[in-house]
Design a protein around this nucleic acid. Structure first.
Lengths: 106, 106
DNA sequence: TTAATATGATACCAAATGGAATCATATTGG
DNA sequence: CCAATATGATTCCATTTGGTATCATATTAA
């Protein structure tokens, strides 16, 4: 039972993983497809995808011998919730966004 | 000219540093004050504060022999800007928040 | 069936990271 | 001035992390 908030922040901390998330906003991709866009081995990309899965930021659907990686924007909820600590500095607008997203992803 | 976005995400990736930011939402604190709340050496806390400074999330004001650490919510702008890549999933509300914050902190 | 394809898993490595320990520097108070 | 205080800087260490190389497994296609 690891901390989901920590896993999500950890996943976001690496630029390659943020790039992968960026790619997945356009289309779902297999590991091979993602790896094809980076100058690193498929194994390295696989590790990043595992970290992203642990952080709840992507989901994986097995289709035959392929694994389709799909963005899971709901996984950002813990991150955005944490930003609530800055409400005092932002006139409660961040909190408004958070509840809007929660309503949106249910 | 290091990447400010990366530095900010990196700074947020550690739970101790997020706790420090949380503390600083209540009041400005010296290094000694921050260290007094953690079960680790002052040197370790100092390292975290340096990472937070590099990430632009806090500012430091020297007052005599003390260094007052102060929250810098503006430093989160690069992070929130990055979240814009999820606009398609969130009906542009994250983007609205970002511009609201930018206007607020100018 | 069997070879090609797509992925998983493991071992290994260098570099980064979190932390303690220690010494140095600067400022304040008596 | 001088001792106490607050912080900075450096060294060292164990662990984590990003990456490659390699081998194993599962699925598809001919």
């Amino acid at each position: 039972m690891t901390d989901q908030t920590q896993n999500a922040f950890r996943a976001l901390a690496d630029p390659t993983r943020r790039d992968i998330l960026h790619m997945l906003t356009t289309q779902d991709m297999t590991i091979g497809q993602v790896a094809g866009r980076f100058d690193m081995t498929r194994a390295a990309v696989k590790k990043h995808l595992t970290v992203l899965t642990d952080g709840g930021l992507i989901t994986v659907e097995t289709r035959g011998r392929e694994r389709i990686n799909r963005l899971n924007p709901t996984g950002l909820a813990p991150v955005l919730s944490w930003f609530d600590i800055f409400d005092h500095f932002w006139d409660d607008r961040l909190s408004d966004l958070k509840s809007a997203i929660e309503k949106d992803t249910q």
